[in-house]
Design a protein around this nucleic acid. Structure first.
Length: 591
RNA sequence: GGACCGGUAGUUCAGUUUGGUUAGAACGCCGCCCUGUCACGGCGGAGGUCGCGAGUUCGAGUCUCGUCCGGUCCGCCA
């Protein structure tokens, strides 16, 4: 009862041979006097024919249903004239069955597994084992495996060492909410699952592993998105004695090679853009460079404008006025523009000003806009000349606080490109570099743009004097508007590390308590080092063209971080909690 | 914490705007027929707590409130 061939191997070469195959019944076609099965195994499909000559076999075939697992023996034959199926790799031949065995039956599946049926995600996740049988999911997970193998092999050739770091570890300061695991042996104490292996990999640098990598599971207890799961995989990399240039070259080469090897895609050059330039031109630090639209800063020309909506931000140092010219924007309907206004509203924008250029030669008369009546002639003229408008263009404006203008126009830029089908190519990678060290959060406190172990490229004295002016050797690799990964040159000096932590209001004592081991390691000859981490799931999501990260993870969580297959999380038994020194207060809805 | 979309047969959906007889369709499932199909075909059939709970009403899938579940986004995610 052992198969001699895989389904996809049953081709012309085997004509006349007696072979056997095993697999799932993908589809059956019962014609009364002859029965066809499309038999499926992991990578192929072949047609098996059951004729009524052998009565026992034929009546057994009549009882078979979709997704039964069967074994069948028979002779490979060229299909009769006119019945070949060119859509099938094995479509020139068929197996004339002489034997059939049902290895396992199947209940009718809760949804159809063929490519023509559409299924809701809830049902798919509940019966994930069936969903994973579908070719789309099979292809996604197989590519995922191919890519991780290619990445490993590339790093191995470059003499990297793969080292695993603990999952039961200590909570780190800042960052995301931790997943906690109670300690049985230390009442009242908790492990945290790592948000990333950052501290361990830096420690490994101090340990003399000059090139480290790991496919690391990371955990962050924050709200989910289409591209965010509470547990996810990072390709984590760190290199001693390396500068940013070296890491960027290494990773560029690695990503290019993997795209070439697994998808036959040439990503071409990875242009470098400074953080400052990215924000100014695209409003975001992960611009989609397939999109030709750009923001233009026009703050200067509105300084003396009577129109308060523009003059106020023009005279405020934390505000900007950005214009986004959409060539041929006249194709946008009034309804679309209204929708855009609502859309930017979700980012905090108070409205969406626009000017439509019907005839650029006619000056004010050739324009359509709800706002130009508030704008003086000289200002309007210089605006139009800066933007070099043409007939049919629409210019959208964002005016207000920097972050609101940037967030809303960056989002609008994506949406308009989608609606007008403006993308100029399939793949557009880039590096975003020269990030500021810190930014101010809404409480006015400093927070690191990257993380608190990123080195500023200035002295301790300069850093203390003007922290917000400090830049870092940090770098993000961006593909099609998705942040694939990011990293930086790290701090390898104790004084600098403490200075940075102090600026973040983390005292030396607190630092000692939270990650004394790293501070300690820095004092025993820690080499300078730099590295980065790639969001592996997101990378596969891009490579497979998936809409959601869930489609490249075998057993993902829902938006509320539950698993519909296993029904995790679940309640713990009282004696388990007892052992862990935990008392549950019950669901208290008051407050 | 917030905004929005959805939940009706096993599945995907229509029906909800404007409350009114027995809640429909397609696919799937079951039965019968069919010897060349390949998303086979024909005939017949079964299958529904309209997510759940209150309320309004003579009457609720449809209106109101609450709640649960799935999704998209904002906040959050160094």
């Amino acid at each position: 009862m052992k198969r001699t061939h895989k389904c996809r191997e049953v081709t012309r070469d085997l004509i006349g041979k007696e072979i056997s195959v095993s697999g799932w019944i993908h589809r059956r076609r019962d014609h009364g006097g002859v029965i066809f099965f499309d038999l499926r195994d992991e990578d192929g499909l072949v047609q098996v024919v059951y004729n009524p000559e052998s009565k026992a076999m034929f009546s057994l075939a009549e009882t078979c249903r979709n997704e039964y697992v069967i074994f069948s023996k028979g002779e490979v034959r060229e299909r009769p004239e006119g019945t070949a199926n060119d859509n099938l790799l094995t479509g020139q031949v068929e197996i004339i069955a002489s034997d059939l065995e049902i290895i396992n039956s199947s209940l009718p599946t809760p949804f159809q597994l063929d490519e023509y049926a559409s299924v809701g995600e809830e049902t798919r996740l509940k019966y994930r084992f069936l969903d994973l049988r579908r070719s789309e999911m099979q292809d996604n997970l197989r590519l995922r495996s191919k890519v991780s193998t290619a990445l490993r092999s590339h790093l191995d050739k470059e003499n990297f060492v793969e080292i695993e770091t603990p999952l039961l570890t200590k909570a780190t300061p800042e960052g995301a909410r931790d997943y906690l695991v109670p300690s049985r042996t230390f009442p009242g104490q908790f492990f945290a699952l790592p948000q990333s292996p950052q501290l361990f990999k830096q420690t490994l640098m101090a340990s003399g592993f000059e090139k480290y990598f790991q496919f690391a599971k990371c955990f962050r207890d924050e709200d989910l998105r289409a591209d965010r799961q509470p547990e996810f995989t990072q390709l984590d990399i760190e290199v001693s004695f390396a500068d940013s240039e070296e890491v960027i070259n290494l990773i560029t080469e690695m990503i290019r090679r993997v795209f070439k090897e697994t998808l036959s895609i040439d990503l071409g050059e990875f242009p470098k853009i400074s953080y400052h330039e990215a924000i100014e031109k695209y409003g975001i630090d992960k611009p989609d460079l397939r999109n030709p639209l750009q923001l233009v800063e026009v703050k200067e020309i509105f300084k003396d404008c009577e129109f308060k909506v523009f003059s106020e931000p023009a005279n405020d140092k934390d505000s900007r006025i950005a214009a986004m010219k959409v060539p041929n924007g006249k194709l946008l309907t009034r309804k679309q523009i209204d929708d855009y206004t609502d859309y930017v509203g979700t980012y905090g924008a108070k409205g969406l000003a626009y000017i439509r250029i019907d005839d650029p030669t006619k000056g004010r008369e050739g324009l359509q806009s709800p706002i130009i009546k508030f704008i003086e002639d000289p200002i309007l003229e210089s605006l139009l000349s800066i933007l070099e408008v043409k007939e049919g263009d629409i210019v959208f404006f964002g005016a207000g606080k920097n972050n609101i203008v940037n967030d809303s126009l960056a989002a609008l830029r994506d949406l308009v490109a989608k609606d007008l089908d403006l993308l100029t190519c399939d793949w557009a990678p880039c590096w975003v570099v020269d990030f500021p060290m810190f930014e101010k959060n809404k409480n006015g406190d400093l927070t690191p743009l990257h993380h608190p172990f990123t080195a500023p490229n200035c002295s301790i004295e300069e850093l203390i004097k003007d922290p917000l002016a400090a830049l870092t050797d940090a770098y993000d690799v961006v593909l099609n508007g998705t942040e694939l990964g990011g990293g930086s040159v790290r701090i390898h000096d104790k004084e600098m590390q403490q200075t940075v932590l102090n600026l973040l209001r983390i005292s030396n004592d607190e630092a000692e308590e939270k990650f004394g081991f790293l501070i300690s390691a820095l004092q025993y000859g820690c080499p300078p080092h730099a590295g980065l981490a790639i969001g592996f799931d997101r990378m596969i999501m891009l490579m497979t063209g998936s809409e959601s990260i869930r489609d490249v993870i075998a057993f993902p969580k829902t938006q509320t971080a539950s698993c519909l297959l296993t029904e995790a999380p679940g309640e713990a038994a009282l004696d388990q909690l007892e052992e862990l020194h935990i008392r549950f207060h019950g669901l208290d809805k008051e407050e």
